[in-house]
Design a protein around this nucleic acid. Structure first.
Length: 424
RNA sequence: GCCCCCAUCGUCUAGUGGACUAGGACGCUGGCCUUUCAAGCCGGUAACAGGGAUUCGAAUUCCCUUGGGGGCACCA
């Protein structure tokens, strides 16, 4: 047991986790398991307004589905709890206060209106948008006056006016930012909640996180975090920014990419072992030929050194192929058990329910070698069907539905009667 | 607009100065097998973004250009 390796997956419950989010969770989990370390789940719910009902359950369910068990976090607790940031507000407030007292942060009374106007003007003049540090050097008397006047300030971090901030990244190498390009970001909002930056740094330190494995999109906020660690006199963790998973249009994965949520893949009939294997190969590889690996092999071989730097498009074709491979690895009874709920759900309604498992078991060998998913796509987004959906292929063997089939089957010689005959 | 990151087949990738006439996989495609389809097996298609530099020798090192992505909120 390596006591020093502690990593976390820190999702925000603002929606369904997509494959990019879960790939990050997977890499953290693989890294922890490979090193005999600890995998922690922490919920970053510091924005009440963006909270989505059911998102938390969806996140945990996605992790469970893939078998990514966590050692500390929701439902299991742990010595560094609570694991919901909304239950740790006093800690962040204490740290914010401490930073103000040490001269690393300051209260800012600027109104949202003023900030908005300022940004709009900067953008118009094609200047980089950023806070103008209006409140950075307010005299104490002025601060007291504004506070007494009822304005609740935010707390901003003081970025050094000169110099540069440098940090190492296990995947990217050395990265340097000019401090002049960073602005005095908010660490504590006026409602008393911390922003991501503060909460993240405070918690990673308090939870003794050794390695921060997160998506590339965070790279440009890392200098802020580094500065925060320095100001707090905390030792920063090792950073490893993972290449992003992109949509077919090469852009960051988002809601409009439809089929990206994990539970949706589950509902369409993808196997968790196929999903895990496929996701592991997005940004990581073992060598020049090994592709099919089970959970145990992935844990055994995973290493940060073999994580790439290039963003990867989430390509459905290969996932469909791989799912078919895993489907074929199952024994026929195993497959039948997994398939029954999907058939009950997706077979034409004209076929009487409940389905006869014995019959399904008999036709399954004919289906197993050609299916790619267990269910049908139900996609409003209109994704192209994979062409290997079990219910569609299985309908051929249910007489009630025969009249609809002839065109769909490429084998023209085989009659439905012949098919049933072939079954013995 | 500014800052940061990245750059090998359509896609996922191997490759860390010579073993590269650039390897594997998906996809596409030809064949075999097979009563059909599929699966399986065998084969084919297809890439080092461009330009300089370093070197006896660059996919591999450096610089520039171009391209792509990400970030720049009292969101994470």
């Amino acid at each position: 047991m390596n006591q020093s390796i502690r990593v976390r997956y820190a999702p925000s419950p603002t929606g369904m986790p997509h494959v990019g989010n879960i790939r990050t969770a997977l890499f953290n989990w693989l890294f922890a398991r490979h090193h005999g370390g600890t995998f922690i789940v922490r919920i970053e719910d510091t924005d009440a307004s963006r909270k989505v009902e059911g998102a938390l359950e969806d996140i945990l369910e996605s992790l469970r589905w893939l078998g990514l068990d966590w050692d500390e976090g929701p439902e299991v607790g742990g010595e560094c709890g609570p694991y919901f940031q909304s239950q740790r507000l006093d800690l962040y407030q204490k740290h914010a206060r401490q930073l103000v007292e040490a001269g690393h942060a300051y209260p800012c009374f600027c109104s949202p209106q003023r900030l908005d106007d300022m940004r709009r003007e900067q953008t118009q003049r094609k200047q980089p948008p950023g806070y103008d540090r209006h409140c950075r050097e307010l005299p104490q008397g002025e601060i007291d006056r504004l506070r007494d006047g009822g304005t609740v300030p935010v707390v901003r971090f003081k970025i050094p006016l000169q110099g540069q901030t440098n940090f190492g990244d296990l995947i990217r190498g050395d990265v340097t930012f000019e401090n002049s390009t960073l602005d005095d970001f908010v660490i504590l909002k006026s409602d008393g909640y911390p922003t991501y930056h503060l909460a993240n740094v405070v918690d990673d330190h308090l939870m003794r996180i050794s390695h921060v494995l997160r998506a590339d999109e965070w790279l440009s906020s890392t200098p802020k975090h580094k500065l925060l660690y320095d100001a707090l006199d905390y030792k920063p963790p090792y950073w490893a920014h993972l290449p992003m998973i992109l949509g077919p249009d090469r852009a960051k994965l988002s809601k409009r990419h439809g089929a990206a949520s994990l539970t949706e893949f589950r509902d369409r009939g993808y196997l968790p072992q196929a999903m895990t294997n496929f996701l592991a190969l997005l940004g990581w590889s073992l060598d020049d030929r090994t592709e099919l690996m089970d959970r145990k092999e992935l844990v055994e071989h995973f290493s940060l050194e073999r994580v790439g730097k290039t963003g990867a498009i989430f390509g459905m074709d290969k996932l469909d192929w791989m799912n078919g491979v895993y489907l074929r690895k199952l024994t026929t009874p195993e497959l039948t058990d997994l398939a029954m709920p999907f058939l009950e759900r997706d077979l034409a309604s004209s076929i009487p329910r409940p389905l006869d498992r014995e019959y399904v078991l008999r036709i399954m060998p004919l289906l197993q070698e050609r299916i790619r998913t267990l269910g049908k796509a139900h996609l409003p987004s209109g994704d192209a069907p994979s062409g290997g959906e079990l219910p569609e292929l299985a309908e051929f063997f249910f007489p009630d539905n025969l009249q609809h089939d002839p065109e769909r089957l490429r084998g023209k010689k085989l009659s439905p009667e012949g098919a049933r005959e072939a079954l013995g």
